[in-house]
């Protein structure tokens, strides 16, 4: 099967039991996506499929023929950080760093959802969607950070969103 990861076309043969996360980590040496629970409960494995965020541990690799996959490695490099990556560094939006790639991929997907006007549990109404701290916190609650950098994560995302607006 074939798919694109971070702009590179991959052609692989894969056991149909392999999760998308394990494909990245164990077969393609893309270990930036993290395995925190393998249950879709922690968000550490969040990546972008055709621009939308998903838990890659809950998806089998074989379901992704022709998909356009973006992982943390595709967002930026240490020498050329994505704005969210830079904001996570400057706001200390992490400590141990293990949930961080998932947080950042999730934030990329989340800001796009906000831009499209998708409502959340805390939106005042289905059409009244605004970027504020409550919206960021709610929409980022699928990504657990046990070090608990949440206030800094909110600060980082708010900064980037404001710059984009």
């Amino acid at each position: 099967m074939h798919f694109t990861i971070n702009g590179t076309l991959y052609q692989v043969e894969v056991d149909n039991r392999v999760s998308l996360l394990d494909l990245l980590r164990e077969h393609l040496a893309l270990t930036g996506s993290k395995k925190g629970c393998d249950h879709g409960q922690c968000g550490a494995c969040t990546i972008l499929i055709n621009g939308r965020r998903i838990n890659s541990c809950l998806s089998l690799a074989v379901m992704h023929q022709d998909d356009d996959i973006t992982t943390i490695e595709g967002l930026g490099s240490p020498e050329d950080l994505h704005p969210l990556q830079a904001a996570f560094v400057s706001h200390d939006g992490y400590q141990c760093g293990y949930c961080t790639p998932g947080q950042i991929c999730s934030a990329v997907g989340m800001l796009d959802e906000l831009k499209k006007g998708w409502p959340s549990h805390v939106s005042p109404s289905l059409r009244d969607v605004d970027l504020n701290d409550d919206e960021i916190s709610e929409r980022m609650s699928g990504n657990i950070c046990r070090c608990s950098a949440y206030p800094n994560i909110v600060d980082a995302i708010r900064d980037v969103a404001a710059a984009q607006a």
Partner: peptide, 12 residues
Amino acid sequence: SRSEGPLKVTGR
């Protein structure tokens, strides 16, 4: 900022 930060935020 953490000196290892750029590695952590890029998955390296």
